[in-house]
Amino acid sequence: MGLLYGLIAVGLALIFGLMDVVNFAHGEFLMIAMYATFFLFAFFALDPLLAAPLVAAALFIFGAVVYLLIVRFAVRAKANTGMVQIFSTFGLAVLMRGVAQYFFTPDYRSIPHSYLGGKTISIAGIYLPQPQLVGALIAIAAFAGLYFFIHRTDFGRALEATREDAGAVALVGIDKNKVFALGWGLGAALVGLAGAVMAIFFYVFPDVGASFATIAYVTVALGGFGSVFGAFAGGIVVGLVEAMTTLILPPSLKTVGIYGVYLLIVFIRPRGLFGSI
């Protein structure tokens, strides 16, 4: 489960952490991805695993469009950039929920039969549900890919440079908007992957994002902003803490454990585990 939190968080880590833009509509991106997966399944009987690349591609476009239509202006705001980001993306979240409710109705949906759904592997009495296992593998692959991407490609370097100093970058002939739009697209595509995996074992409805969003923020911050590896580690920590708190505390208090560990870590290390900013 920890790796799944990691998978949800990785897209956020890119947007939130690397580009330093707050996205309060992250949970809603996830919701859209889950709906997309669901409808691909319902109309074309496409298994979520096969649908994943398609969903990721669709979310890539969606993310880029959101950046160009909304976030671009929020980042450019002369005053209160932080607040404008928080609230314009919050507005977007509300808007997306409304639109989802309008078109998809508020009914709960879920994919009843998929290739992986409900299958488990049992190793020495420990049950590993296959969807989660595949999700974990995808998460590791996504993190590795993103890590490579950021640190080894021109685009990754351009992204980081743009965040640090947009003015200087412009002098070298890099268009900030283009770089960030691609970054947003990529972040959203990763959320798309997460959504496709989630749809296998979770239900979908317009407000589904809310359950995951806070955990995703905590995961990213726990690992530290600006660090892909941090988000990965954060996901694992969150998963472990969740499993362990239920051993000592009643399950209804398990979020307290996760949040408590976050506070503990940032009080000791104000930049998270591996944060650079």
Binding site: D107, Y108, R109, S110, P112, G118, T120, S122, Y127, P129, P131, Q132, F201, Y203
Partner: peptide, 27 residues
Amino acid sequence: AELGYKPNAIVAQDAGFSEKALYDAVG
């Protein structure tokens, strides 16, 4: 189902367990 838990019997206090959405999903 994922964790391989199959109870002897489930006697539910309604709510979700009378909704069509639930049976569509995991009936």
